[in-house]
Design a protein around this nucleic acid. Structure first.
Lengths: 256, 256
DNA sequence: ATTAGTATTATAGTATGATTTATAGCCGGG
DNA sequence: CCCGGCTATAAATCATACTATAATACTAAT
């Protein structure tokens, strides 16, 4: 199987390469937070691109909250809490400098905070079409026992369908976070490595689907919570001090 | 008091204005999703800027996931689930076209999902310095009974200090979401409009602080949940079908 | 007539230099 | 010591020219 393009990153445009380059350097701390990075002229030479391409790259980074340029004073690397961590590129650049356990932990922590509740809302708000979409993705997962690539893709599609059905655009835009978590987890520990593991993973996903299908928010939420917890354990994440993994949904009572 | 800059939007750079203009038009559906927006030449004329400025604006929008340009085929408006809703600008543009209740509801839904758990982790992970930061912000709130501006600022600082103390960079980067929610809520219904209301709001914030100060995750989480719920009610948000507002943290048990 | 290959062409991408604008830092006057 | 204007510098913007890409149309071969 040579058909997988391991690095679509190769054939990218100039400004994309520059943005990637600078972004990664910032992540790695080679352009430390708070520091002023080299002037236009120097960066042009460094990356071998024109001012146009460079400035477009800068705007990309600025849009993601990584840097800020002011006339005369230069371009400074902003503090981490200005970074938009829900951005696909930022997550990617983070992971490209080596997967560290802390980062994965944070990723799973966020998933644990959002996805169970997304399931709960999806269970209540889903349309028939959205349910069908989840079903399609679930079936695709069943049929991808052999292919890790295909399984990951179907898995992501399943989770994204749930987010979509939650009806909340904020939830709908965290696909990148989940995608990164899945892709990374699967490189560490494949869920299709053994028959037992595969069956267990599928059982959990099925439980999530069933909960949503039956419009049972609590069940859907609990199932998703379990699913994420076990996924985290598979990659041996130990939550540092306390675990939020067993936060549970206590009650779903509608208010007026 | 004239010192408030109602529209810092005025003195912005060219590409910022263009990005703002196009972004807002996209939000309003005047550049519908999936459509191809005008070519470079036309947009240059439309906004009266040079190609450079226009392209920088495009890159900004592309970085936020709003659009995608391909050679020959033009620039297309991407689907909403590519948009990064956790971006401050996108939220701002959304709100600028009139505050609609649904959007506010989504905002509060996300807050309700994340902030209580952020409080819980903060209660466990906080450093003394971070606690001090929260205390400072809380005191500032107490002293801003008269000024809505100052109160909003202090309130945001309080919430941001909690996110900071959660230790999770993903949580740390949702300040824009909370900021937007606070600012918008306060224009609808000021928390300092009456003495009673002010006292109630402060009591709730104090409860959150106390929970974190005493390293009591459950208490901190519950207090924050209450706080957000009441804030939502103040702006008359009725959750559509079911409310996630009274999701409760059931148990915080550390795992190994 | 269908298909495959090639040429055309419109549009985004890149490059370069000139020009404008904003600000840090200096200077001199108060 | 403080304040206001001057100046140098670097970023921001503009204008223009050139390149790369891909959708379309056209041609030719089967």
């Amino acid at each position: 199987m040579l058909n997988d393009i391991q690095r679509p990153s190769r054939a990218r445009s100039a400004h994309d390469l520059v943005a990637h380059g600078i972004g990664q350097n910032i992540m790695q701390g080679r352009f430390p937070i708070g520091s002023t990075l080299p002037g236009d002229a120097e960066l042009m030479e460094l990356f071998g691109v024109s001012r146009t391409a460079l400035r477009e790259a800068m705007k990309t980074l600025a849009a993601k909250g990584l840097i800020e340029s002011k006339t005369k004073v230069g371009t400074k690397v902003l503090d981490r809490n200005n970074w938009n961590m829900f951005d696909a590129d930022i997550i990617e650049w983070h992971l490209e400098m080596g997967v560290d356990a802390r980062f994965l932990g944070w990723l799973f922590e966020i998933r644990q905070m959002l996805e169970p509740l997304a399931c709960a809302t999806a269970a209540v708000r889903r349309t028939p079409d959205q349910l069908k979409e989840m079903h399609r993705a679930l079936q695709a997962m069943y049929q991808c026992e052999s292919s890790r690539q295909g399984f990951t893709k179907a898995d992501l599609a399943f989770h994204q369908a749930i987010l979509e059905a939650s009806g909340n655009p904020f939830l709908q835009s965290i696909g990148s976070v989940i995608g990164a978590a899945l892709a990374t987890s699967f490189t560490i520990s494949s869920p299709v490595s053994s028959d037992d593991r595969f069956r267990e993973v599928m059982r959990q996903h099925q439980a999530v689907y069933d909960g949503i299908e039956q419009s049972d928010p609590a069940a859907a939420s609990d199932a998703m919570s379990d699913l994420i917890l076990q996924a985290a354990q598979r990659v041996r994440i130990k939550h540092e001090e306390s675990s939020l993994a067993n936060v549970q949904i206590h009650a779903f009572s509608g208010v007026d």
